[in-house]
Nucleic acid binder design. Structure first.
Length: 241
DNA sequence: AACTATCGCAACCGCGCGGAT
DNA sequence: GATCCGCGCGGTTGCGATAGT
């Protein structure tokens, strides 16, 4: 016995590790279908009861992350992605808390998707994924945030990323903020990062990335849809030299 | 076609928390 | 109060699939 410390979970010899086989999955699913949530067992007992040579922890992980019948497979929707970004801005890396708001998604799913997709996307847009603030604008005070403003021009060799903070003047509900995200898309040269208090007022930071120069050279304006409130012409004359 | 690099995801690992004793 | 124990969480790793050269 280990006094004062933790007993290793998988120290028994002969326990299997690595990818699960179809047979193992079947045994675990059968066991949980029969015994279900009725209690009378703990995860540590499951391998013995189900006839598996795995540690209980591995069984629990396999069930919660892969075998649970209520899991949603497949790609994350735009709504889910936006929700993850929003929740991460408020909760940080508390994946289990974030997963509560996304039925059918596991914390592991969300964590993986964040690390492989969203994090990279934010970085490409010039946002620190940890703070949800622009890398080079962290000390800008709120008054300055209210003024449309762009970063200094970058050398031509670098991909062009333009950041335009937009503070909504309307009494914008969280719902409307979410609708704003609908104009976002992979084929668009812009993306949105939303921050709102979930009650009423909110702040929308719009980040323009990609070939902005060609997008804006013919016209120094951009039409932004304000949910049900119609369209507003964002003055982008700031892109002009 | 062969090799290498990158990506995406499943699974593992170690730690902390909280309940039970 | 100290210790044990089970569970859940977050970080990290391993590896197959895919893309690029």
């Amino acid at each position: 016995m280990i006094m004062g410390g933790r007993k290793p979970c998988c120290d028994e010899v002969g326990l299997r590790k690595g990818p699960w086989t179809v047979e193992e999955d079947g045994k675990l699913v059968d066991f949980l279908r029969i015994r279900g949530g009725g209690g009378g067992w703990c995860w540590r007992d499951v391998p013995k009861l189900a006839g598996l040579r795995r540690c209980g922890k591995s069984c629990r992980l396999r069930w919660t992350n892969y075998l649970r019948p209520d899991l949603k497979r497949g790609l994350f929707s735009e709504e889910e992605i936006q929700l993850i970004i929003d929740l991460h801005a408020r909760l940080g890396n508390r994946w289990s808390k974030i997963a509560v708001e996304l039925p059918g998604r596991t914390d592991n799913d969300i964590k993986n998707y964040w690390n492989t997709h969203i994090k990279r996307k934010l970085i490409r847009m010039g946002i620190d994924p940890n703070t949800h603030r622009r890398f080079d604008q962290q000390n800008v005070n709120e008054e300055e945030e209210k003024v449309l403003k762009v970063n200094s021009p970058k050398p031509p060799s670098e991909p062009e990323v333009v950041v335009v903070p937009v503070v909504l003047q309307n009494d914008t509900s969280a719902g409307n903020l979410n609708e704003l995200a609908d104009v976002d898309g992979d084929d668009q040269p812009w993306s949105f990062l939303m921050e709102n208090d979930g009650v009423g007022a909110g702040e929308l930071t719009m980040l323009l990335s990609g070939d902005i120069a060609s997008s804006c050279s013919s016209s120094s304006s951009l039409w932004l849809k304000y949910g049900d409130l119609g369209y507003e012409d964002l003055e982008l004359g700031c892109f002009d030299d």
